[in-house]
Design a protein around this nucleic acid. Structure first.
Lengths: 192, 192
DNA sequence: CCGGAAATGAAAGTGACTCGCATATTCGGA
DNA sequence: TCCGAATATGCGAGTCACTTTCATTTCCGG
């Protein structure tokens, strides 16, 4: 990774920090992207090139790409739900626990702001197609029709787990929240 | 329902039909709301009062409110997943089969247009909170933590069922698609 | 038939997001 | 170390979804 990418990442981190602070202070709608640009000292168009949308200023996570790698390592070697569960734990739990306060704050703001929560859900939906394809390939032929449900359910479990983790203030470890959510999924038949 | 509501509904149906036609012809982004307003002969601000957003021009369904009633009738009398499944079948299947061509067309356009599919998913998320509360109340205390997963999974099943119905061109009855999707949910434990 | 309530139309405004272009910065290779 | 190519940034103008306000019209109950 050269200077280019390094500078870009640094600018994005800085922009995100400023954005989160201002959003908390005055509300998501009341802060214009242009103000943030001025405060950070870059052009508004650069922010859009970096983040795409105003919502992504909050939702962006530098390391989100690593999830795919963890998934690829496990899908096909384990049953899909437990593969995805393990991949989430491996690629998210430790990292989120590391800067717990920042992530708790960020997630809290997402869950408490309709517009942001909506955008987050929409992001999950975009991930779903990709995950569905990967799951389908890892299932025996007779069960392939279940792929969209399995993939969707897995992302739902993650969402619920993050919600529980943040609303408990991080008291329950994130890894435990994820495992719990996935185990609830597998018990759906018993609940009926 | 007086003249007021009747006129409003008629105008909304007309607007939706014109919108769907134009969107298909020239693409969702290429059609301005103001053009639609001119063509229908109403003000753009009226369209926004009626639909709220451009996406709702496609997503709006006059009878969506009836789903809640069907849910209320069954939740608490049956296990939640089968209650929700039955409610969906009762309140959607027949109605969608009635004007099959229109609904297939509408859903096809939603599923093939990222922006619309995203907005649809966001709408589901808004319904989820409400459904979660209803499910929670219908569950025995020891299982209440499962409510968000149950509600989210049910909406996921509906989404997958509609997708399958539309992509099969309506060949498989919608009721069957819904029942299949929910039965896949209950088998998640076996897939692991 | 009339007075009040609600829906509509018209118009101006806001701000997220895009695009094209000139400039500056970085990268790979000589 | 220097140079040309690739790429990122700043700037400015533009588009359009959506909001708000207010005057006008339409509908409802009495």
């Amino acid at each position: 990774m050269g200077m280019r990418e390094r500078n870009r990442r640094a600018a994005m981190r800085e922009t995100q920090r400023v954005a989160l602070r201002r959003f908390r202070e005055r509300g998501f709608d009341a802060v214009r992207v242009e103000e943030l640009a001025d405060e950070v000292g870059i052009a508004a168009s650069t922010i859009y090139r970096h983040f795409g949308t105003k919502e992504q200023l909050v939702l962006w996570d530098e390391h989100d790409g690593e999830i795919d790698a963890a998934l690829g390592r496990r899908l096909g070697r384990q049953p899909p739900l437990s593969a995805i569960c393990d991949a989430f734990v491996e690629s998210l739990a430790d990292r989120y626990e590391e800067d717990r306060d920042f992530q708790l704050d960020r997630l809290g703001y997402v869950f408490s702001t309709e517009q942001l929560h909506g955008a987050a859900v929409e992001g999950d939906y975009r991930a779903r197609d990709e995950l569905t394809a990967a799951v389908r390939a890892s299932l025996p032929r007779r069960q392939r029709d279940a792929a969209p449900i399995v993939a969707g359910a897995a992302l739902l479990a993650l969402e619920v787990a993050l919600d529980r983790w943040q609303s408990s203030g991080g008291a329950t470890p994130l890894a435990e929240c994820i495992v719990d959510a996935f185990s609830t999924l597998e018990r759906l038949g018993a609940i009926g």
